[in-house]
Design a protein around this nucleic acid. Structure first.
Length: 314
RNA sequence: GGCGACUUAGCCAAGUGGUAAGGCACGGGACUGCAACUCCCUGAUCACCGGUUCAAAUCCGAUAGUCGCCU
């Protein structure tokens, strides 16, 4: 029995096979799926995000997929709020919410209930600081941070302009140090009876799968998809267009290099992304690793997961 | 068979006498409102042998491999 509300989390690097496993889990455990993916929330971005298709869902309800337009703003705070709503809704139905996706940052935000309420993105201030960094250099920007929040300044590398700006923004809006805020948030305990599964595969196999996936994206018409997005008015600067596969095709279409080259880059950068995901999940506490390579078949893998879940929350 | 060029880390590539730039890849790491983002860290003794020199990746000779041209 559960002491708190149950939550099953399934993650892992891109292209390990989260999607297919998630369907099996949902069916077996009477669950519904919430996507924890920063790109699949956008409509019209199907091929490049390897979004699950309607048929594949097999009737299992999916949340946070196709919920926003590519030009809408979406971020962790929005995700967290929406995700919590979905979890509640699913619980109300007496079903198990299954959070599936590769955006570790998003998963963290809901599992540990990181508090985002107080502040809001201040785009004017952000652009102002970005311009400042461009003019006076990253070191000068970093010095501003040293003045208000020495601790953050020590952790954030001066070249990491984005993070430096966020820390400054936080200070401007709240009058407090983001390092203090983070310290408080880090100590939080999960509000759920959860299991946090991270699927993994040997590097070489994963990389091969990534390459194949990118090839099939090309065959399925990723280029056409990007052209459509362009026709809809999507611009390079939009967060959605920074997605892997989109930014590369976009720049090829705008005359920077060939499509051939673009697809090579997509493969390369997807591998890098997978590596970053490993780094993230490795240091995340409470993760249960599941090496897919250990199992003879999908079924065996699924059976193992189901059993693990049930032995923890019988 | 002859002539010529080339041979620097997994790849690309600077360096032409004073003790090995850089880029990419691989690997590792950070990350608490842009996160599929952004950022950080990490490698060689210069094909091989011999010689010249206080000192050679850099000069000379031999060997091997690669490429080009010639008969």
């Amino acid at each position: 029995m559960y002491k708190k509300k149950p939550l099953l989390i399934l993650t892992g690097p891109t292209a390990v096979g989260k999607t297919s496993l998630s369907i099996g889990l949902a069916k077996a455990l009477n669950g519904e799926i919430i996507s924890a993916d920063s790109m699949q929330v956008y409509r019209h971005m199907d091929i490049g995000t390897a979004k699950i298709k309607k048929e594949q869902m097999q009737g299992i309800p999916h949340y946070l997929i196709d919920e926003y337009e590519p030009f809408e703003e979406f971020n962790v705070a929005v995700f967290q709020a929406r995700c919590k709503e979905c979890i509640e809704e699913i619980h109300k139905k007496g079903k198990l919410p299954i959070l599936v996706g590769g955006t570790g940052f998003y998963i963290q935000s809901v599992l540990y209930s990181v508090n985002f309420e107080e502040t809001e993105a201040d785009s004017a201030y952000r652009t102002e600081l970005t311009a400042f960094a461009k003019e006076h250099g990253t070191a000068a920007l970093h010095e501003k941070l040293i003045l208000v929040d020495r601790e953050s300044a020590e952790t954030i590398h001066p070249n990491n302009v984005k993070r430096v700006i966020r820390a400054l923004e936080y200070y401007k809006q709240t009058g407090q140090k983001i390092s203090e805020h983070n310290k408080v948030q880090q100590g939080k305990e999960p509000a759920y009876d959860f299991r946090y599964y991270a699927l993994t595969l040997p590097r070489e196999i994963l990389y091969k799968r990534i390459n194949q996936r990118v090839d099939s994206m090309r065959e399925e018409g990723l280029v056409e998809e990007v052209k459509k997005l362009l026709a809809m008015g999507c611009k390079r600067e939009m967060v959605s267009m920074q997605g892997l596969g989109y930014k590369e095709i976009l720049s090829a279409l705008e005359g920077e290099g060939t499509l051939e080259h673009a697809f090579e880059r997509i493969k390369q950068e997807t591998r890098h992304f997978a590596k970053r995901q490993f780094t993230w999940f490795k240091r995340e506490r409470d993760v249960t690793w599941i090496d897919k390579g250990q199992f003879q078949s999908e079924e065996a893998l699924l059976a193992y997961c189901i059993q693990d879940w049930q032995t923890h929350f019988r």
